[in-house]
């Protein structure tokens, strides 16, 4: 499917620039061109498709659905699934949290949504397909959804309502299940497309610099680090590799789109995929800026429990992948 990009990269590097095949520099450049073009195309396609889905499932609809349907335990999974199709912006996480609480949606279900939404987002999926292929992407998406679901259920069982900040407790007391008046924008697909397209370009503009830097670093490493280099240090038998990778990853955030291309090279050079996936979930799913924002609605203790439970679940899935893959 992407052969033509490889041909193009070959042509630019070996014919147009007249570089010798097999040199570190020419291999690195070839890799950079190939990866950049492929990943940008995939990002464009995935973000666009998600934009269309989201245009028909705005967050208010999701909230009303979760608030008004009795789902007999499936609500965690539903919230997690909705999290996939909703684009996540950490600055929206607090209004979203309050909106859910106000709609009478249980805390654990809200958490399930809050966990999956950043973890399985359109940018991560686009990058994943480009870097690791469809199979690994599907595994990542499914485990992301399950991780949100299970963490949500655990957090609900812990009865954390007492650790909300006082004004949120007030909101909780006045929560009601009644349907908000929600006027769906009645637009045809043709009217929606230009708006969606503009959003796609906006998102891309924000991440492209990081992606390019990430691929450039990846390209250099690809050319210079020997195959299997990391196998000696970080193989599957090294049991503490997964927790260390996860804990290192949690504070990283804004450069998530730049980190994925680097991680791909690390995997190619011998780091086990499960360890890498745990690392990436930590980068994409949990972040310090998000924690700072959540301080407005949660006490530090609650944020610590929230991050702790999710981190443990990520570590567990890292081990699981190392066993399965």
């Amino acid at each position: 499917m992407f052969d033509w990009i490889q041909h193009m990269a070959n042509w630019i590097v070996y014919d147009l620039l007249n570089m010798t095949q097999g040199l570190h520099l020419s291999e690195a450049l070839n890799f950079f061109i190939y990866d950049t073009v492929k990943i940008l195309i995939l990002l464009l396609v995935v973000i666009f498709i998600m934009g269309i889905v989201n245009s028909y499932f705005p967050i208010d609809k999701v909230k009303n659905y979760l608030s008004n349907h009795k789902l007999y335990g499936l609500e965690y999974l539903m919230a997690s699934l909705f999290g996939v199709v909703t684009p996540f912006c950490s600055c929206s996480s607090v209004p979203l949290f309050i909106g859910f609480v106000r709609g009478g949606i249980p805390l654990g279900v809200t958490f399930a949504f809050l966990i999956t939404s950043p973890l399985v987002n359109e940018v991560a999926i686009g990058l994943f397909i480009g870097l690791f292929g469809i199979k690994t992407t599907i595994i990542y998406v499914i485990s992301g959804i399950l991780l949100g679901t299970i963490s949500g259920i655990i957090l609900q069982k812990l009865n954390l309502e007492t650790y909300l900040t006082p004004w949120v407790k007030n909101v909780l007391k006045n929560a009601q299940k009644e349907q908000d008046i929600f006027i769906a924008e009645k637009q045809t697909l043709q009217q929606r497309l230009p708006i969606i397209w503009k959003e796609v370009l906006n998102i891309l503009k924000g991440i492209v610099p990081y992606v390019l830097v990430g691929i450039a670093i990846g390209g250099l490493m690809h050319g210079y680090i020997p195959e299997g280099f990391f196998e000696t240090y970080m193989n599957k038998n090294n049991w503490f590799a997964v927790p260390i990778a996860t804990i290192l990853a949690v504070p990283m955030y804004s450069n998530a789109s730049g980190i994925l291309p680097v991680v791909q090279v690390l995997v190619a050079k011998g780091i086990p995929l499960g360890t890498a996936i745990a690392f990436m979930m930590g980068v994409v799913g949990l972040s310090l800026p998000e924690a700072m924002l959540l301080k407005k609605v949660m006490t530090l203790k609650l944020i610590a429990i929230f991050f702790g439970v999710v981190t443990l679940c990520i570590i567990a899935s890292g081990y699981l992948f190392n066993v399965l893959l």
Partner: peptide, 29 residues
């Protein structure tokens, strides 16, 4: 935040004209 929540919006930014929410969660043209 408290004031924002009085408008019951869940995705920011939101544009309110004469107390009517017109656009939320995206940048308009």
């Amino acid at each position: 935040l408290m004031e924002i929540m009085e408008y019951n919006v869940m995705s920011t930014p939101a544009l309110v004209i004469d107390d009517v929410i017109t656009i939320k969660g995206r940048i308009p043209t």
